[in-house]
């Protein structure tokens, strides 16, 4: 049994409870299908929990964090925060400005050489401009703060 699987089961039960609460707000006829799916997910999670308990008796308990052995928390959290800030800033300062900020900040954080930063940013923005602005004619967010 892996300790991490306990978390998986808790999250899955949480998802079931959340959807169950919302399903009960629906009219009766619309409840049946979501209830069946919730029951399926809850049933499979229970089966997994039972397997875990049997496994704990048979093979003991491990932390189950093998997938995290190379995990660098500070690097991951920093980049994830940068992504969140990037997406949050996009409607305000526009796609290109926020992307330049995000890419420069993350590449500097990851210790990429300046000439590589300039080269990779140029390549990405030329690609995005040609593919999305010229070819697909997508109107990318221009940013509310600039008053466009």
């Amino acid at each position: 049994m892996k300790k991490s699987d306990i978390g998986v089961c808790i999250v899955m039960y949480g998802v079931c409870a959340f959807f169950l609460y919302m399903t009960l707000q629906l009219p009766k006829a619309a409840q049946i299908y979501p209830l069946c799916v919730i029951a399926l997910l809850a049933g499979l999670t229970t089966l997994h929990a039972v397997n875990m308990i049997i496994g704990a008796f048979r093979t003991g308990i491990t932390d189950g964090l093998e997938n995290f052995k190379d995990f660098l928390p500070s690097q991951f959290v920093s980049i994830f925060l940068m992504i969140l800030i990037y997406i949050a800033l996009m409607p305000y300062i526009g796609f290109y400005a926020s992307s330049v900020l995000f890419m420069t900040a993350s590449l500097l954080f990851l210790k990429v050489k300046i000439w590589q930063i300039v080269l990779s940013e140029t390549a990405i923005f030329v690609l995005v401009y040609c593919a999305f602005t010229l070819f697909l004619e997508v109107r990318l967010p221009s940013g509310t703060v600039w008053g466009f």
Partner: peptide, 22 residues
């Protein structure tokens, strides 16, 4: 290091392009 922000930007612009919706 270069792939991480590049892929992220392409994900953002790609998903935005579908309905031009944030």
């Amino acid at each position: 290091a270069i792939l991480i922000p590049s892929v992220t930007i392409l994900c953002v612009v790609g998903s935005f392009a579908i309905h031009q919706n944030y």
